[in-house]
Design a protein around this nucleic acid. Structure first.
Lengths: 228, 228
DNA sequence: TAAAAAATATGATAAATGTCAGTTTTCATA
DNA sequence: TATGAAAACTGACATTTATCATATTTTTTA
């Protein structure tokens, strides 16, 4: 099994602030898991005994609203750590995590994290920074959700998918979400989501081939997402 | 001037994790400010040289959306600290803060905070906890904003006002927001906000006297905010 | 206190979005 | 490769919400 000490992914998250000893402990106690597309990693309300470090694949973090719909709050990719928040405050998760792709994850027992928080101020500082960053992003999402209309949010979602998950050699978005998942990111009905995609294609903002979607007019989407 | 060491307000925020020395330093370098209703404390995009601890009054934290409307992301009251996030990550604020009431604040230079973060792990841990809590709340707001309709969000807003700012002896909400501010909390047009208040009054969910609003049917508002 | 300005309120209407019902396409797998 | 299920799509329609115009009330200021 590969050792955390040598893991490149660590560079992308707070674990980079751990010292050799702490990393060794993580490495010795971690468990590698694979989760197939569509399967859950954990569910809203569950008590987590640790965090999950994403080695490969993408996970959707969502919360069930009282009306029965799932709102996707965040998409987490390679290097991100799931469940940090609830381990820090020692309460059950407020989000469910489901694999959007086939995934490979490392489960790290919570003691590894909480003990390091108590002993390594640099690690704590790093986590604090990270949390602060996530909070800012959440504020932005709140503003987008409440002040932009569905079309603008859809445009924004495609820009987000490009910026965060990139494009393949031919320019197609690397991450292909189902229309339903996309509508749960944007906070709209699946049918509306589908209609807007057709509209964007007609207007030359998007192109598609099979399930793959390509952004044809980045500036256009940007303009749309920002203006009334 | 009063000393932070004796300040009760400290109990409500991360400053309680400071030791005597650190508190003394804060006390010696803090500056008390008063801000009149409607005046700004800081503006979105500004570089903050410190944080503001709310001694009295209430502040709205908002962000301008590209369409020109202000979205109120949070209402901060006695004991809360404004500007923490941007001091931690050393970037400019993502939010504007404006006094909703006449306010009394203590300005604490950022060095007091950043130095304590470097030296006092307990303080850092406390801030981390706090940030984690705020993040959870932000997630909830995202779900509400995207999955609930305006009427449900209005109901929710009144419950929030009661739970966070309380009622006076006669049962009126302590915090009276203008219809415009309220619409910026809920993320709707002012006219819609007004209409829904009238509707709630007709249905016996709310009562009012002058500018003061009273929750007449708490359970009713709760039911409305949760079901379709 | 009178006048002006701001906040609140209401109606009419348009635009955005959701819902339901049904069709077509895609995909997994027997 | 045939077939059943899931996903994607489309149209018709209902509902929600925003916008604009205007009236009324409240608050501020001269």
């Amino acid at each position: 099994m590969s050792r955390c000490e040598n893991c490149i992914i660590r560079q992308f998250n707070s674990l980079r602030a751990m010292n050799k000893e702490e990393l060794k402990r993580v490495s010795d106690s971690k468990v590698t898991k694979t989760v197939k597309k569509g399967e859950p990693i954990f569910e809203e309300g569950e008590k987590l005994n640790g965090v999950y470090c994403v080695r490969n694949g993408i996970s959707k973090l969502s919360k069930l609203s009282p009306n029965g719909k799932d709102q996707i709050v965040k998409l987490a990719t390679r290097g991100e750590i799931l469940g940090q928040r609830s381990v820090v405050v020692e309460e059950s998760t407020n989000l469910s995590a489901v694999a959007v792709d086939d995934m490979e994850l490392c489960f790290i027992p919570k003691e590894c994290i909480t003990d390091t928080i108590s002993k390594n101020p640099n690690f704590t500082k790093e986590m604090l920074r990270h949390m602060a960053h996530e909070l800012k992003e959440a504020d932005d999402v709140i503003v987008n959700m409440s002040q932009k209309n569905v079309k603008q949010r859809m445009a924004e979602a495609f820009l987000y998918l490009k910026n965060n998950f990139g494009e393949d050699e031919e320019g197609f978005l690397r991450l292909t979400l189902s229309r339903e998942d996309l509508s749960n990111v944007v906070g709209t009905a699946t049918e509306s989501c589908i209609r807007i995609i057709s509209e964007f294609k007609k207007k030359g903002l998007l192109e598609s081939s099979g399930k793959k979607i390509k952004i044809a007019d980045f500036k256009g989407l940007q303009r749309l997402s920002e203006s009334l």
